[in-house]
Nucleic acid binder design. Structure first.
Lengths: 129, 129
DNA sequence: TTGTAAATGTTACGCTTGTAATAGTAAGGA
DNA sequence: TCCTTACTATTACAAGCGTAACATTTACAA
Protein backbone atom coordinates (compact mmCIF):
# COMPACT_ATOMS: atom_id res chain seq x y z
CA UNK A 1 0.00 0.00 0.00
CA UNK A 2 2.02 2.90 -1.21
CA UNK A 3 1.34 6.42 -0.12
CA UNK A 4 0.15 8.65 -2.87
CA UNK A 5 1.59 12.15 -2.73
CA UNK A 6 -0.66 14.97 -1.71
CA UNK A 7 -1.84 16.60 -4.89
CA UNK A 8 -3.37 20.04 -4.67
CA UNK A 9 -6.35 21.19 -6.64
CA UNK A 10 -4.41 23.08 -9.27
CA UNK A 11 -1.88 20.32 -9.53
CA UNK A 12 -4.66 17.86 -10.08
CA UNK A 13 -5.47 19.53 -13.38
CA UNK A 14 -1.96 18.89 -14.54
CA UNK A 15 -2.18 15.28 -13.48
CA UNK A 16 -5.39 14.86 -15.40
CA UNK A 17 -3.65 15.87 -18.57
CA UNK A 18 -0.86 13.41 -17.97
CA UNK A 19 -3.25 10.65 -17.07
CA UNK A 20 -5.06 11.12 -20.32
CA UNK A 21 -1.93 11.31 -22.44
CA UNK A 22 1.57 10.63 -21.40
CA UNK A 23 4.35 11.17 -21.87
CA UNK A 24 3.94 14.82 -22.68
CA UNK A 25 6.26 17.79 -22.77
CA UNK A 26 5.69 20.85 -20.67
CA UNK A 27 4.42 22.58 -23.74
CA UNK A 28 1.93 19.89 -24.51
CA UNK A 29 0.56 20.31 -21.04
CA UNK A 30 0.42 24.06 -21.32
CA UNK A 31 -1.41 23.75 -24.60
CA UNK A 32 -3.99 21.37 -23.22
CA UNK A 33 -4.61 23.44 -20.15
CA UNK A 34 -4.89 26.78 -21.85
CA UNK A 35 -8.31 25.76 -23.01
CA UNK A 36 -9.59 25.20 -19.51
CA UNK A 37 -7.69 27.65 -17.38
CA UNK A 38 -6.11 31.06 -17.63
CA UNK A 39 -2.83 30.06 -16.12
CA UNK A 40 0.37 31.44 -17.54
CA UNK A 41 2.96 29.04 -18.87
CA UNK A 42 5.13 29.79 -15.89
CA UNK A 43 2.40 28.89 -13.49
CA UNK A 44 1.91 25.57 -15.13
CA UNK A 45 5.62 24.94 -15.11
CA UNK A 46 5.69 25.60 -11.40
CA UNK A 47 2.94 23.10 -10.87
CA UNK A 48 4.79 20.55 -12.93
CA UNK A 49 7.95 21.08 -10.96
CA UNK A 50 6.18 20.70 -7.69
CA UNK A 51 4.65 17.48 -8.88
CA UNK A 52 8.07 16.21 -9.80
CA UNK A 53 9.34 17.10 -6.36
CA UNK A 54 6.44 15.27 -4.82
CA UNK A 55 7.24 12.29 -6.99
CA UNK A 56 3.87 12.34 -8.62
CA UNK A 57 5.59 12.85 -11.95
CA UNK A 58 8.91 11.95 -13.45
CA UNK A 59 10.50 12.86 -16.74
CA UNK A 60 12.88 11.62 -19.33
CA UNK A 61 15.23 13.96 -21.04
CA UNK A 62 14.80 13.89 -24.77
CA UNK A 63 17.27 16.35 -26.19
CA UNK A 64 16.39 19.76 -24.92
CA UNK A 65 12.99 18.90 -23.58
CA UNK A 66 11.58 16.79 -20.83
CA UNK A 67 8.95 14.21 -21.39
CA UNK A 68 6.82 13.92 -18.32
CA UNK A 69 4.84 10.92 -17.20
CA UNK A 70 2.88 10.08 -14.05
CA UNK A 71 4.28 7.96 -11.28
CA UNK A 72 0.93 7.32 -9.67
CA UNK A 73 -2.25 6.13 -11.24
CA UNK A 74 -5.47 8.05 -11.25
CA UNK A 75 -7.43 5.37 -9.47
CA UNK A 76 -4.85 5.17 -6.71
CA UNK A 77 -5.21 8.87 -6.13
CA UNK A 78 -8.96 8.98 -6.36
CA UNK A 79 -9.13 6.22 -3.85
CA UNK A 80 -6.85 8.00 -1.44
CA UNK A 81 -8.78 11.22 -1.80
CA UNK A 82 -12.06 9.47 -1.28
CA UNK A 83 -10.74 7.94 1.85
CA UNK A 84 -9.67 11.20 3.35
CA UNK A 85 -12.89 12.80 2.23
CA UNK A 86 -14.83 10.17 4.10
CA UNK A 87 -12.68 10.49 7.11
CA UNK A 88 -13.37 14.16 7.17
CA UNK A 89 -17.10 14.04 6.86
CA UNK A 90 -17.92 10.88 8.66
CA UNK A 91 -20.32 8.32 7.39
CA UNK A 92 -23.35 10.21 8.53
CA UNK A 93 -22.77 12.41 5.53
CA UNK A 94 -22.85 9.70 2.95
CA UNK A 95 -26.49 10.19 2.08
CA UNK A 96 -26.37 13.95 1.68
CA UNK A 97 -23.28 13.43 -0.37
CA UNK A 98 -24.81 10.90 -2.65
CA UNK A 99 -27.86 13.08 -2.95
CA UNK A 100 -25.68 15.97 -3.95
CA UNK A 101 -23.94 13.82 -6.51
CA UNK A 102 -27.13 12.81 -8.10
CA UNK A 103 -28.54 16.25 -8.06
CA UNK A 104 -25.45 18.09 -9.12
CA UNK A 105 -24.38 16.03 -12.04
CA UNK A 106 -27.15 14.84 -14.18
CA UNK A 107 -26.04 11.27 -14.14
CA UNK A 108 -26.85 9.29 -17.21
CA UNK A 109 -29.12 6.27 -16.86
CA UNK A 110 -26.20 3.99 -17.58
CA UNK A 111 -24.14 5.49 -14.86
CA UNK A 112 -27.04 5.38 -12.48
CA UNK A 113 -27.48 1.76 -13.30
CA UNK A 114 -23.88 1.03 -12.55
CA UNK A 115 -24.08 2.86 -9.27
CA UNK A 116 -27.15 0.93 -8.30
CA UNK A 117 -25.45 -2.30 -9.13
CA UNK A 118 -22.54 -1.43 -6.87
CA UNK A 119 -24.90 -0.88 -3.99
CA UNK A 120 -26.91 -3.94 -4.75
CA UNK A 121 -23.85 -6.10 -4.70
CA UNK A 122 -22.72 -4.60 -1.47
CA UNK A 123 -26.10 -5.29 0.03
CA UNK A 124 -25.96 -8.90 -1.01
CA UNK A 125 -22.49 -9.48 0.24
CA UNK A 126 -23.58 -7.91 3.45
CA UNK A 127 -26.46 -10.27 3.85
CA UNK A 128 -24.43 -13.32 3.09
CA UNK A 129 -21.90 -12.54 5.72
CA UNK B 1 -27.96 30.18 -2.91
CA UNK B 2 -25.66 31.43 -0.20
CA UNK B 3 -21.97 30.81 -0.25
CA UNK B 4 -20.70 28.65 2.52
CA UNK B 5 -17.36 29.73 3.93
CA UNK B 6 -14.31 27.70 3.16
CA UNK B 7 -13.76 25.46 6.15
CA UNK B 8 -10.42 23.76 6.51
CA UNK B 9 -9.92 20.24 7.71
CA UNK B 10 -8.98 21.14 11.26
CA UNK B 11 -11.71 23.71 11.45
CA UNK B 12 -14.18 21.10 10.34
CA UNK B 13 -13.63 19.20 13.57
CA UNK B 14 -14.65 22.24 15.50
CA UNK B 15 -17.73 22.66 13.38
CA UNK B 16 -18.69 19.07 13.98
CA UNK B 17 -18.75 19.69 17.69
CA UNK B 18 -20.95 22.71 17.29
CA UNK B 19 -23.24 20.96 14.88
CA UNK B 20 -23.78 18.22 17.37
CA UNK B 21 -24.32 20.53 20.34
CA UNK B 22 -24.70 24.23 20.29
CA UNK B 23 -24.37 26.67 21.75
CA UNK B 24 -21.14 25.76 23.45
CA UNK B 25 -18.39 27.68 25.14
CA UNK B 26 -14.80 27.52 23.99
CA UNK B 27 -14.10 25.26 26.89
CA UNK B 28 -16.87 22.88 25.99
CA UNK B 29 -15.36 22.59 22.56
CA UNK B 30 -11.90 22.05 23.92
CA UNK B 31 -13.18 19.35 26.19
CA UNK B 32 -14.97 17.52 23.44
CA UNK B 33 -12.04 17.68 21.10
CA UNK B 34 -9.39 16.62 23.56
CA UNK B 35 -10.67 13.10 23.24
CA UNK B 36 -10.08 12.97 19.51
CA UNK B 37 -7.12 15.22 18.91
CA UNK B 38 -3.97 16.33 20.66
CA UNK B 39 -4.50 20.00 20.03
CA UNK B 40 -3.68 22.50 22.71
CA UNK B 41 -6.42 24.76 23.99
CA UNK B 42 -4.81 27.65 22.21
CA UNK B 43 -4.85 25.87 18.93
CA UNK B 44 -8.51 25.18 19.24
CA UNK B 45 -9.18 28.76 20.19
CA UNK B 46 -7.39 29.88 17.07
CA UNK B 47 -9.56 27.63 14.98
CA UNK B 48 -12.65 29.00 16.64
CA UNK B 49 -11.59 32.56 16.01
CA UNK B 50 -10.88 31.88 12.40
CA UNK B 51 -14.29 30.34 12.02
CA UNK B 52 -15.83 33.42 13.52
CA UNK B 53 -13.92 35.59 11.08
CA UNK B 54 -15.12 33.44 8.25
CA UNK B 55 -18.63 33.80 9.54
CA UNK B 56 -19.08 30.12 9.99
CA UNK B 57 -19.67 30.70 13.67
CA UNK B 58 -21.03 33.48 15.79
CA UNK B 59 -21.24 33.93 19.52
CA UNK B 60 -23.29 35.52 22.20
CA UNK B 61 -21.68 37.07 25.18
CA UNK B 62 -22.93 35.54 28.38
CA UNK B 63 -21.11 37.25 31.17
CA UNK B 64 -17.44 36.49 30.87
CA UNK B 65 -17.73 33.74 28.31
CA UNK B 66 -18.85 33.40 24.75
CA UNK B 67 -21.42 30.93 23.64
CA UNK B 68 -20.70 29.86 20.12
CA UNK B 69 -23.14 28.56 17.58
CA UNK B 70 -22.91 27.72 13.88
CA UNK B 71 -24.07 30.08 11.18
CA UNK B 72 -24.11 27.44 8.49
CA UNK B 73 -25.69 24.05 8.57
CA UNK B 74 -23.83 20.85 8.17
CA UNK B 75 -25.78 19.74 5.14
CA UNK B 76 -25.15 23.04 3.41
CA UNK B 77 -21.46 22.58 3.88
CA UNK B 78 -21.38 18.95 2.95
CA UNK B 79 -23.22 19.81 -0.18
CA UNK B 80 -20.79 22.54 -1.09
CA UNK B 81 -17.83 20.30 -0.42
CA UNK B 82 -19.31 17.51 -2.42
CA UNK B 83 -19.79 19.86 -5.29
CA UNK B 84 -16.22 20.99 -5.33
CA UNK B 85 -15.07 17.43 -4.87
CA UNK B 86 -17.00 16.41 -7.92
CA UNK B 87 -15.73 19.33 -9.89
CA UNK B 88 -12.23 18.32 -9.07
CA UNK B 89 -12.47 14.68 -9.98
CA UNK B 90 -14.96 14.79 -12.76
CA UNK B 91 -17.92 12.53 -13.04
CA UNK B 92 -15.93 9.71 -14.48
CA UNK B 93 -14.77 9.13 -10.95
CA UNK B 94 -18.16 8.71 -9.40
CA UNK B 95 -18.17 4.94 -9.61
CA UNK B 96 -14.71 4.39 -8.18
CA UNK B 97 -15.66 6.81 -5.47
CA UNK B 98 -18.86 5.09 -4.58
CA UNK B 99 -17.07 1.78 -4.68
CA UNK B 100 -14.48 3.14 -2.30
CA UNK B 101 -17.19 4.44 0.00
CA UNK B 102 -18.84 1.13 0.18
CA UNK B 103 -15.63 -0.71 0.66
CA UNK B 104 -14.10 1.68 3.12
CA UNK B 105 -16.93 2.16 5.51
CA UNK B 106 -18.88 -0.89 6.26
CA UNK B 107 -22.23 0.63 5.59
CA UNK B 108 -25.13 -0.74 7.56
CA UNK B 109 -27.98 -2.39 5.68
CA UNK B 110 -30.26 0.48 6.60
CA UNK B 111 -27.90 2.99 5.20
CA UNK B 112 -27.38 0.96 2.11
CA UNK B 113 -31.10 0.79 1.68
CA UNK B 114 -31.40 4.52 1.92
CA UNK B 115 -28.66 5.02 -0.58
CA UNK B 116 -30.30 2.66 -2.98
CA UNK B 117 -33.55 4.47 -2.63
CA UNK B 118 -31.90 7.74 -3.50
CA UNK B 119 -30.59 6.26 -6.69
CA UNK B 120 -33.82 4.56 -7.50
CA UNK B 121 -35.74 7.76 -7.22
CA UNK B 122 -33.25 9.55 -9.36
CA UNK B 123 -33.59 6.88 -11.97
CA UNK B 124 -37.35 7.21 -12.00
CA UNK B 125 -37.34 10.94 -12.21
CA UNK B 126 -34.91 10.60 -15.02
CA UNK B 127 -37.16 8.33 -16.96
CA UNK B 128 -40.21 10.44 -16.46
CA UNK B 129 -38.57 13.54 -17.76
C1' DT C 1 31.18 30.69 -33.82
C1' DT C 2 27.83 33.40 -32.07
C1' DG C 3 23.21 35.05 -31.44
C1' DT C 4 18.59 33.84 -30.51
C1' DA C 5 14.69 31.49 -29.28
C1' DA C 6 12.95 27.91 -26.64
C1' DA C 7 13.32 25.16 -22.67
C1' DT C 8 14.42 24.73 -17.93
C1' DG C 9 15.74 26.67 -13.13
C1' DT C 10 15.51 30.05 -9.39
C1' DT C 11 13.22 33.33 -6.77
C1' DA C 12 9.09 35.84 -5.15
C1' DC C 13 5.12 37.03 -2.64
C1' DG C 14 0.80 37.12 -0.30
C1' DC C 15 -2.82 33.97 1.57
C1' DT C 16 -4.30 29.89 4.18
C1' DT C 17 -3.39 26.29 7.52
C1' DG C 18 -1.60 23.89 11.45
C1' DT C 19 0.15 24.67 15.62
C1' DA C 20 0.97 27.50 19.33
C1' DA C 21 2.93 31.18 22.86
C1' DT C 22 2.20 35.35 25.07
C1' DA C 23 -0.35 39.41 26.36
C1' DG C 24 -4.42 41.74 27.92
C1' DT C 25 -8.82 42.02 30.49
C1' DA C 26 -12.41 41.33 33.58
C1' DA C 27 -14.85 38.94 37.43
C1' DG C 28 -14.92 37.05 41.73
C1' DG C 29 -12.65 36.06 46.19
C1' DA C 30 -9.62 37.80 50.03
C1' DT D 1 -9.97 47.42 46.84
C1' DC D 2 -6.59 44.51 44.88
C1' DC D 3 -4.94 40.15 43.30
C1' DT D 4 -5.46 35.85 41.17
C1' DT D 5 -7.50 33.23 37.81
C1' DA D 6 -10.03 32.18 33.99
C1' DC D 7 -11.24 33.98 29.49
C1' DT D 8 -10.37 36.34 25.33
C1' DA D 9 -7.22 38.86 21.96
C1' DT D 10 -2.96 39.53 19.62
C1' DT D 11 1.06 37.85 17.55
C1' DA D 12 4.11 34.14 15.58
C1' DC D 13 5.97 31.18 12.35
C1' DA D 14 6.83 27.60 9.03
C1' DA D 15 4.83 24.82 5.27
C1' DG D 16 1.75 24.50 1.36
C1' DC D 17 -0.63 26.81 -2.48
C1' DG D 18 -1.83 29.94 -6.33
C1' DT D 19 0.19 32.81 -9.24
C1' DA D 20 3.95 34.47 -11.47
C1' DA D 21 8.44 37.17 -12.98
C1' DC D 22 13.17 36.89 -13.88
C1' DA D 23 17.50 34.24 -14.88
C1' DT D 24 20.08 30.73 -17.10
C1' DT D 25 21.23 27.22 -20.36
C1' DT D 26 21.42 25.04 -24.73
C1' DA D 27 20.37 23.50 -29.50
C1' DC D 28 20.11 25.12 -33.79
C1' DA D 29 20.41 28.63 -37.51
C1' DA D 30 23.08 32.11 -39.72
Amino acid sequence: MKKTPNISEAEWEVMKVLWSTSPATANDIVKKLSGKTHWKRETIRTLINRLVQKKALAFEKKGRQYHYFPLVTESECVKAETKSFLKRFGKSSVEPMLAAFVEEEKLSPERLGRLRRILKEAAEKNKKK
